[in-house]
Design a binder for these strands. Structure first.
Length: 443
RNA sequence: CGGGGCAUAGCGCAGUCUGGUAGCGCAUCUGCUUUGGGAGCAGAGGGUCGCAAGUUCGAAUCUUGCUGCCCCGACCA
């Protein structure tokens, strides 16, 4: 992408409403635009990051055996009357009427709808287990939206729903998502800790929140320090093996970790003081096992091996990709701006042409831009006729991991400078060295 | 939902108390000079002062109503 042709509305000053660093940086970097309280437009740079996050989520959901579909944003109230939640949900649910005065609503979650879909088609235990997910916009009419996309009213959610014949199978499904979540967050460069959690209005008896530690987090959390050093399950972990899944779950729940609602001060204080971690956290995922809470009232049943109807066991599993964008920035930034982890960076490389119009400099930039793009990388080429300082500031602000600085000084020696955004490390390389060193990394 | 605050140019703000026809910095546009960490000079454009009523010869400024947004708390992916 040539920056001169891109849409990147960067702000030099911080809009006054932004309180936390991720919100400030997202506005300054031209990632989002507030359209209403808690409602944001995603500008091109923000959307690129959001899409990269979604891609990782999809890969890990698919790996764990979940199947993607897409349900609508607008739902019928009748569905929610069946589960009893139409009255329970309260003012957080945005209710609307269509032209025929039918009661509709803007979906805050999809348990009812997925249960309706399931019961319409699935008749046999042989079709279980089944896990269906989608990535769709949700609306929750929060009393007080704040912190930009961290707590917005309209937000993107990946929600998966599992269906099993019995409680044991449902546990396995739960563990599979548990494992997939650990892998998902790790791939994004985040350390997420699963914590026993309250089930809230979703219901059920088993629930974990995935929390990343950050000083600006909204919840207070407590855990054993060993979790910070634990590695996520490997790519080849066997999701179909109940023993393997149980093993992952046991490892990650062997020590104390809880949010403030579930906090057991006695158990926490029983740990040696040096093992205790008390911090603030951001909830980036939440999983639930709720048995027959929806399948029972909505009559989601299958025929069992003995020919008798069995009410299916369900669970639901949510990740907020839009919130993750903010959480990633909270965890990865400095005074100059964002520092994207490679896996979610909107661009892999930024090329700064320090002297637009200079034949040799232009040619070197074009060569790098062409070859890195051909190698499959997302490359941002700053070809604007602007001063070097402005270009450096822009690259740092939007946080591109690798910056290639091309100017007459370096080219006189046949070199360009490669700067690593995260470490600040710089190396002088020839054009060929840059291409050889990096362009082969990606298939 | 309780409490507090704000609304003037794209962004950040002054002007409001004490009514007299709107200003500063940044950004934008033009020209010249600059060019390895957000350049300098000269010039230009851009605002029915959130909306609606009212008071007044005259309202950004005073009054009333409305709307939007932000912050603190209780609730939440």
């Amino acid at each position: 992408m040539r920056l001169s042709r891109f849409f990147l509305p960067i702000l030099r000053e911080t809009p006054k409403e932004a309180e936390i660093v991720s919100h400030r940086l997202m506005l300054r970097a031209g990632m989002i635009r507030q359209e209403s309280a808690g409602i944001y437009a995603w500008l091109p740079l923000g959307l690129k990051v959001l899409n990269k996050i979604n891609a990782i989520i999809r890969e890990e959901q698919n790996r764990a055996g979940a199947i993607e579909l897409l349900m609508p944003v607008i739902q019928s109230a009748d569905l929610w009357r069946e589960s009893g939640r139409y009255d329970d949900y309260g003012k957080e649910m945005l209710r609307i009427k269509d032209r025929h005065e039918r009661d509709m609503l803007f979906g805050p979650t999809n348990e009812e709808m997925i249960t309706e879909i399931f019961r319409s088609y699935v008749r046999s235990y042989k079709d279980l287990p089944l896990n269906l997910y989608h990535i769709q916009w949700k609306f929750r009419d929060e009393v007080r939206p704040r912190f930009g996309v961290m707590r917005s009213r309209e937000f993107l959610m990946k929600d998966a729903y599992s269906f099993d014949l019995d409680a044991e199978g449902a546990r396995h499904s739960y563990y599979k998502m548990f494992t997939a979540y650990l892998r998902t967050f790790t791939r994004m460069g985040l350390k997420a800790i699963p914590m026993r959690a309250d089930t809230g209005p979703i219901g059920g008896n088993l629930s974990h929140e995935f929390i990343i530690l950050a000083s600006t987090g909204e919840s207070e959390v407590f855990c054993h320090k060993d979790f910070l050093a634990l590695d996520a399950p490997a790519e080849n972990v066997d999701f179909e093996s109940r023993a393997a899944m149980q093993g992952v779950f046991d490892t990650w729940t062997s020590k104390y970790a809880a949010t403030s609602e579930m906090h057991d001060a006695a158990a926490y204080e029983a740990m040696p003081e040096t093992d205790r971690v008390s911090a603030r956290g951001i909830e980036v995922g939440h999983i639930f096992n709720f048995g027959t809470k929806y399948s029972e009232p909505m009559k989601a049943v299958v025929n069992g091996p003995d020919g008798k109807d069995v009410t299916v066991q369900m669970g639901s599993y949510g990740i907020g990709p839009s919130r993750l964008v903010a959480a990633l920035i909270e965890a990865n930034h400095d005074e100059a701006g964002i520092i994207w982890p490679d896996a979610v960076a909107p661009f892999n490389f930024a090329i700064a042409n320090l002297k637009v119009g200079d034949g040799a400099t232009d040619a070197a930039c074009e060569k790098l831009y062409g070859e890195l793009s051909m190698a499959g990388f997302d490359v941002l080429y700053d070809d604007r006729d602007d001063r070097p300082g402005a270009k450096f500031a822009t690259m740092d602000l939007i946080g591109v991991p690798l910056q290639i600085i091309v100017g007459p000084k370096g080219l006189a020696e046949g070199k360009v400078e490669v700067k690593h955004r995260r470490t600040g490390e710089r190396e002088m390389l020839s054009l060929d060295e840059v291409v050889n060193k990096f362009a082969t990394k990606k298939g």
